[in-house]
Structure formats: structure tokens, C-alpha cells
């Protein structure tokens, strides 16, 4: 039982957490030095975190689906734990995306919220993963829970292309993507691109660190449950 002395996080996770935090500080420093936008002035700075948070939320939900497929294939409980951990981090970044987006929308669009396609599909996406965790809580049998959750996590990624493409498919108030994959264009002045990319990288590094730590915590919780069962 030498496990009790084991550190909560491994050294790679701690390292990634530190690097992610430092890179984020650099990104934020550059973001605050970047010029204001010709239209909205300094309000544009919300963009530097809004894009990173939204992309990382997408990434986290995709990773959750990949681990869900791995679980269904290999039946290894650790894949189920990582899938749930990734979905949880995705939900956190999605909440930050919604919060930052609302803070940005009020001074630029004029309202905190409106039921337009991008926001409606974002609300559906967020609600879906809230439902995912309620489903996990509702099922007691670990194996059935893991299988149902895996199915939900795989189903959930359908939301992502719909959410991303909503601004191209339907009339909306939300602007189309600045990193425009559809038309392969970057609608941004070079002086603003660097801080955005650095913030994006930082949030991605933090995601990997969070995922490793959350996965480790979930593994310990599962081991403890087995002892007391």
C-alpha cells in the first residue's frame, strides 16, 4: 500500500500545467500589446481567449469520442475514465466560451444572448454534455454506464460540425470564422494573429495537462471504489 505516498500528479502533467500557464501569460501579454480593432477598438481582445476556448472545447469533445471508441473496442475502463475526463474539460471550456462570448456580444452586438443559429447550436451542444454527465450519474452498473456514455460521447461530436458550419449555412448575427477553414482564409491583421495562436497553443497545452490529471484522479477514485465495494 505504498500508493498513499504517490503524488497526486505525475511530473509530466505538472510540467505541462506550468508550461501551459507560462505560454498563456506570454499570449496575454502580447494580446494586450496588440493594436485595437478599427471597428470595435479594445473589445476585440476578448477574441484572443474566445477562439482558443471554443476550439479547445471542440477538441476535448472529439478526444472524448476517440476514447469512447477505444473503450468500445478494447473494453479497458481507463479509456472510459479518459473519455469522461475529456468531456468534462470540454464542458468547462464550452462554459468559458459562452461566458466570454456573452461578455463580448453585449458591447458589440448590443445583447448578451439572442436565439440565432450559432448561439442556439452552442446551447444545444452545451446541454448535450450536461445530459452526458447526468446519464453517467444515472447508471450505477459501471460497465453499462461506460457503454452508454461511450455511445453518447460518439453521438455528441455530430454537434461540432453543425455548430462550426452554422454561420455559413444559416443567416446569423455571429460573424463567420476568423480562422476560416471553409474558404482557407485568415481574416486578421498579422499583428493580431500571433497572440491568438499563442493563446490557442496555451489552452491546448492546458487541456492535455488537465486531461492527464483528471484521468489520474478518476483512476484513483475507481481503485478506491473497488476496495470499499
Amino acid at each position: 500500500m505504498g500508493n498513499s505516498k504517490r503524488k497526486l500528479t505525475d511530473s509530466l502533467s505538472s510540467f505541462l500545467l506550468l508550461v501551459g500557464f507560462l505560454v498563456f501569460l506570454i499570449g496575454q501579454y502580447l494580446a494586450f500589446k496588440a493594436p485595437p480593432d478599427v471597428q470595435q477598438g479594445y473589445l476585440v481582445r476578448i477574441l484572443y481567449v474566445h477562439v482558443g476556448a471554443a476550439w479547445t472545447a471542440y477538441l476535448a469533445f472529439i478526444v472524448a469520442a476517440v476514447y469512447a471508441i477505444l473503450y468500445l473496442w478494447k473494453q479497458n475502463p481507463s479509456y472510459d475514465r479518459l473519455s469522461a475526463a475529456s468531456a468534462e474539460i470540454g464542458l468547462l471550456f464550452m462554459a468559458l466560451t459562452l461566458f466570454g462570448g456573452m461578455m463580448w456580444a453585449r458591447p458589440t452586438w448590443g445583447v448578451y444572448w439572442t436565439w440565432e443559429p450559432k448561439l442556439t447550436t452552442s446551447a444545444i451542444l452545451t446541454a448535450f454534455y450536461v445530459g452526458y454527465f447526468l446519464l453517467r450519474q444515472a447508471i450505477e452498473d459501471p460497465e453499462f454506464r461506460a457503454k452508454a456514455a461511450a455511445a453518447a460521447a460518439i453521438l455528441g461530436v455530430v454537434n461540432i460540425p453543425i455548430n462550426y458550419m452554422s454561420v455559413y449555412w444559416w443567416r446569423s448575427i455571429h460573424q463567420t470564422a476568423t480562422f476560416d477553414i471553409v474558404n482557407r482564409k485568415l481574416h486578421m491583421d498579422p499583428s493580431m494573429v500571433l497572440p491568438m495562436l499563442i493563446d490557442l497553443a496555451a489552452i491546448n497545452i492546458l487541456f492535455v495537462a488537465f486531461l492527464r490529471m483528471k484521468g489520474a484522479i478518476a483512476a484513483r477514485a475507481a481503485a478506491r471504489e473497488e476496495i470499499y465495494d
Binding site: P36, Q39, Q175, T178, H187, M188, M192
Partner: peptide, 9 residues
């Protein structure tokens, strides 16, 4: 307000 996705100083 519907603003554009293009940002420049």
C-alpha cells in the same frame, strides 16, 4: 449589430 469576422488595426 452584425459586425464582420475581419479584424485589423
Amino acid at each position: 449589430i452584425k459586425h464582420s469576422e475581419s479584424y485589423k488595426p
